[in-house]
Amino acid sequence: MIRLAQARDLDRVDALYRALLDREESVRYTNWQKDLYPTLAHAKAAFEQGTLHVGEEDGALFGCVILNQIQPPEYASIHWNFQAAPEEVMVIHTLCIHPNFAGRGKGKEFVHFCEEHARAKSWPVIRLDTYEGNFPACRLYEGLGYFYAGETQFHFQNVIWETLKCFDKQVGSKGESRLS
């Protein structure tokens, strides 16, 4: 079940972040850094804003995501496939699946949840970005009907530069048709 996070989930979200970052030491798909991003402070901020969602199965936290309408400034340089006003766009941030649940369809389950959340909020367009080397995430999003919109340089936490690939998808009827 995927639901809005509760205060009691925060330590488990932090543990998920740490488990994922530990795995990243041997298999690097993200450019995330321990004690830099994602952290408990990021989870707490999202919780306080009511934008942190968690997935739980048999008492274990299998994933989390932040859903809001905050588009990074770098998004302005992307030629999005679906044009929409800022208030019509939902952005997927920091979608994480615990390594113990990897390869079990939990990422797909979360993306479907994100799409239903966007529809429920009447946000017809979803946007997201992922590190250029995150091949599993790129395959996941493309396989679920997201369109590659381009890539741009992001200054990750104002520490290092990275290239992120951007994707979008129309999930409602308000966004303009896909551009050619």
Rank of each mutant, 00 (worst) to 15 (best):
E87W: 07
C96H: 08
P99G: 10
R104V: 02
K108C: 11
V91G: 02
F113A: 03
G105Y: 05
T94L: 14
M90T: 13
K108T: 14
P86Q: 04
A84G: 13
K108R: 13
V89D: 00
G105I: 11
G107F: 07
V89Y: 00
C114W: 09
H112L: 12
C96I: 12
H93N: 04
E87T: 00
I92F: 01
E87Q: 14
A85R: 10
P86T: 08
F113D: 06
N100K: 14
V89S: 01
M90V: 15
K108M: 11
I97A: 03
E116T: 02
R104K: 14
F101P: 13
V111T: 08
R104Q: 15
P99T: 12
E115A: 07
C114E: 11
H112G: 06
C96S: 14
R104L: 15
H98S: 15
M90I: 09
L95Q: 05
E87D: 14
G105D: 11
E88W: 04
F110Y: 12
H112F: 09
I92P: 00
I97L: 08
P86Y: 00
R104P: 07
H112P: 03
R104M: 15
A102S: 15
E115V: 03
H112I: 12
C114Y: 07
K106T: 12
A85I: 07
K106E: 10
N100W: 14
E116V: 03
H93C: 05
I97G: 05
E88I: 01
M90K: 03
V111A: 05
H117A: 11
T94D: 06
F110N: 07
A85P: 03
G107L: 05
E109N: 04
P99Q: 11
H93I: 09
E109L: 10
I97C: 08
E115D: 10
R104C: 12
E88H: 11
E88Y: 08
F101T: 06
N100M: 06
G107V: 14
F82T: 04
V89W: 00
G103F: 13
I92H: 04
G107H: 01
E87K: 04
P86L: 01
L95N: 03
G105S: 02
C114P: 10
V111I: 15
K108D: 06
E88Q: 15
F110I: 15
G107T: 12
E109P: 00
L95G: 02
Q83C: 03
F101L: 12
H93Q: 04
V91P: 01
H98M: 13
F110S: 02
H117F: 06
E109W: 01
K106D: 04
K106C: 06
F110V: 14
R104D: 07
F101R: 12
A84Q: 10
E88G: 14
E115S: 10
E115C: 12
E115F: 07
V111H: 01
C96K: 11
C96E: 08
G107P: 07
P86A: 03
M90F: 00
T94V: 13
E115T: 05
F82W: 05
F110Q: 05
H93E: 08
H112D: 08
